[in-house]
Amino acid sequence: MVDVRKIVSEAFLMAIIEGVRKDGPEKTFEWIEHVADNLGEKEGPGLEGDPKGSLNCLHICPFANALQEFLIKYGETPPEFMALLDSADRDDTFAASNVFCIFHHTIRTKRAELAGRKVYHLASSANAERKTAYNEKAIEAANMTKADIDELMEKTVCVFKYE
């Protein structure tokens, strides 16, 4: 039987794969940002996460289950996701550890902007390997070191800073 919620998130991920194949990672990246921006606007001003000193963290990634289920069903991480993450790497905005990070952090950014704040994505590790993706410029701007972030990442999956 079709589980609508699961299939909608699967459809989103499949659309990303199709988008990268058809239009390339840059255009798909823009499309994700556009969708997320609209959703962030609809949700309105808001700040996320558990405050930890000057930073905010997420203890679990709200998208991790959807991604994990997708990967269980479709096998290893599709190369299209990797191409997209490479695109995100070229942008200093993200510390994208999975394809949903682009979507999620764009929503977070829009909601922060509506609340009159800026938000920097410092690190995340929401992938099957728990491999941390860093945004070194943001870490530096936050006057932190990678070691500081690693310490935080032992107990969280995503770190960001509001200004």
């Binding site: 309105g44 001003p45 700040l47 996320e48 996460g49 609340a115």
Partner: peptide, 19 residues
């Protein structure tokens, strides 16, 4: 919130911090 919903919680500025 723009949807009409009251935030589950917010900060002292009234910014939504629902979790």
């Amino acid at each position: 919130k723009p949807t009409g919903e009251m935030p589950q919680r917010c900060d002292v500025e009234g910014t939504d911090t629902s979790y």
